[in-house]
């Protein structure tokens, strides 16, 4: 048997805005790594890394703070969009994004989210929808599907007790101050291409000073869904998208009385 010689060749460098000193600490099969890379690529392609200030939330996005070679803050659960508002108001020339989880958009942070859209804050929100509270161990979230079992809905989510799933992207689209709202997924290569385009558009709306922009990402949480990574992809395709349709819900280039220029 002859040994086959292995040659190593770099085919793709990590994004330069991805801090290499810290490995991604998410669970195997989590989609956050894909989304983090996507954010880095979009920021670099738009040439805004020098003036971007990013926020993680509480829970798993709290660690996002350490992944980016950008000015970053994270670790507080809920008021991310109030903090982002102030940073943007203090530095109007900066580009501000906030990564927010299910509770931060639909529960503890719902008020901050609605108020930021009401004011048409020129910030970009990255909403990670994984249908549960991940960091705390898989409790029900506002986004949990009906009938879905979690550690606090062990018989499945019953709308008589806990109401209905939270549709952040549609809600944002209904607000006058929103320039762009989309829901995307990264569970297939084709969807990743669409999601990156949507994320880029969301940042472009902020750069142009149009209004509030948001991309909701459906994202797998294998540990708390009790599914393998591949089964998670099927769950997104067959269950999540049925409740949370993908697509753009709002895309405007000018909002009267609000947009720059």
């Amino acid at each position: 048997m002859t040994k086959k010689e292995i040659t190593k060749e770099v085919v793709c460098e990590p994004p330069r805005t991805r801090l290499q000193s810290i490995p991604i600490m998410n669970c195997p099969g989590c989609h956050y790594g894909i989304i983090i890379r996507m954010i880095c690529e979009v920021i670099e392609e738009l040439g805004i890394e020098d003036r971007t200030i990013g926020l993680g939330g509480g829970g798993c996005t709290g660690f996002w703070t350490m992944y980016f070679d950008l000015d970053m803050y994270g670790g507080v659960h809920g008021p991310g969009l109030a903090i982002a508002t102030a940073i943007k108001r203090v530095h109007p020339d900066s580009i501000v994004f906030a990564a927010q989880g299910d509770g931060e958009m639909g529960a503890i942070g719902l008020g901050y989210f609605m108020a930021a859209t009401l004011r048409g804050e020129k910030i970009t929100t990255i909403f990670l929808n994984n249908a549960c509270f991940g960091t705390t161990g898989g409790q029900m979230a506002p986004t949990t599907l009906l009938g879905m079992r979690t550690t606090t809905t062990t018989q499945g989510r019953d709308p008589k007790i806990t109401g209905f799933p939270f549709h952040g992207a549609e809600l944002a689209a209904s607000m006058k101050g929103t320039a762009y709202s989309a829901r995307m997924s990264v569970h297939t290569p084709a969807n990743r291409q669409k999601a990156k385009k949507a994320l880029k558009t969301a940042f472009e709306k902020q750069i142009a000073g149009v209004g509030f922009s948001i991309v909701e990402f459906l994202s797998a949480c294998p540990v708390n869904w009790h599914l393998g990574p591949k089964e998670c992809l099927d769950f997104i395709e067959n269950q999540m998208i049925a409740e949370y349709p993908l697509g753009e819900f709002k895309n405007v280039d000018y909002i009267e009385h609000l947009s720059d220029g």
Binding site: A86, I87, R89, G111
Partner: peptide, 26 residues
């Protein structure tokens, strides 16, 4: 400068936090 009326004192506290985090006197 900016006067911003927040959606409540919890938000005002966090806006003060954000503005200060961004280095401004607020």
């Amino acid at each position: 400068g900016v006067y911003l009326q927040s959606e409540g004192e919890t938000a005002a506290g966090f806006m003060l936090f954000g503005g200060t985090l961004a280095g401004a006197r607020c």
